[in-house]
């Protein structure tokens, strides 16, 4: 699994993905690590099938006793079906996830994981030094959905928003937005159910200072590509399956 530091100051953001060992028929996912002193959080740690690769990639960056927290943006299996495995090897691990999905996500484990529910309005937490904000992104696409914003690194982990369906060896960063937007179109039109939710999210996200927008599939947006994405997304009609 490929790993790359995307922020490296007093603490680090690391992206993991493009797993060559991944079974062919499962969707490629990006996992993010925030390593902050003796605490490490994994954002959307992924499914069972890629657990071994994610674990090895994480432990190439930190020690096992420093893996303290998980974050699940929503309840999908490609986000958090590995929960039972993480909980088995790190019984006191914390999982931050949407409150409304708690009873559902617990099905991925033996049920006794330390689940810290994020209320609908959002919340924040301090890892060791860095404050992370859980930004509501409901209906984008799940009914209870959060993104993670780090105001110091100016990084927004945007879950499925900004996702693109790419070939396994695709680059980590968007290099040509005009070319890239076609890879996102179908995904956003079909998976995102609500134009109202989309507009509300864009309005709030435009107020954030963002250097990098990091989706769970596809490539990371940097600098002006973040604004380009927001403009493109704003103009896109979503929830199209109801039209048949």
């Amino acid at each position: 699994m490929k790993t790359q530091k995307i922020y490296d100051e007093n603490y680090q953001w690391i992206v993991m993905g493009r797993d060559p060992d991944k079974p062919e028929k499962i969707i490629d996912t990006n996992q993010y690590i925030i390593r902050d002193g003796k605490k490490t959080m994994l954002l959307d740690p992924g499914g069972i099938e890629i657990f071994s690769s994610v674990l090895a990639a994480t432990l190439s960056e930190t020690n096992i006793e420093n893996i303290t927290d998980l974050f699940a943006s929503h309840q999908d299996p490609d986000i958090i079906s590995s929960l039972g495995l993480w909980n088995e090897i790190i019984p006191d691990i914390n999982l931050y996830g949407p409150s409304i999905w708690e009873g559902f996500i617990r099905h991925f484990s033996s049920g006794d994981v330390n689940y810290i529910g994020i209320p609908d309005a959002g919340s924040s937490m301090v890892l060791e030094t860095v404050e992370l904000q859980f930004i509501p992104a409901h209906y984008l696409h799940a009914s209870g959905n959060f993104h993670v914003y780090d105001a110091t690194a100016k990084i927004l982990m945007s879950g499925d928003v900004g996702a693109a369906l790419e070939s396994p060896g695709a680059p980590i960063f968007v290099d040509d937005f005009n070319e890239h937007k076609e890879k996102m179109r179908m995904f956003h039109r079909r998976w995102m159910p609500s134009n109202d939710a989309k507009i509300d999210w864009i309005r709030r996200v435009r107020d954030l200072d963002i250097n990098m927008m990091c989706p769970q599939h596809g490539r990371i947006f940097k600098g002006d590509d973040v604004k380009r994405f927001l403009d493109w997304f704003e103009a896109l009609d979503v929830g199209v399956a109801i039209h048949g």
Binding site: L55, A56, L59, T62, N63, G84, L85
Partner: peptide
């Protein structure tokens, strides 16, 4: 047993690092 199997796969990938990182 499934967990142990998957953790051992990670151990193999990590090589000597598996000892240092506590795996």
């Amino acid at each position: 047993m499934k967990t142990i199997g998957r953790v051992k796969d990670a151990q193999e990938t990590l090589g000597l690092r598996a000892d240092d990182c506590g795996l």
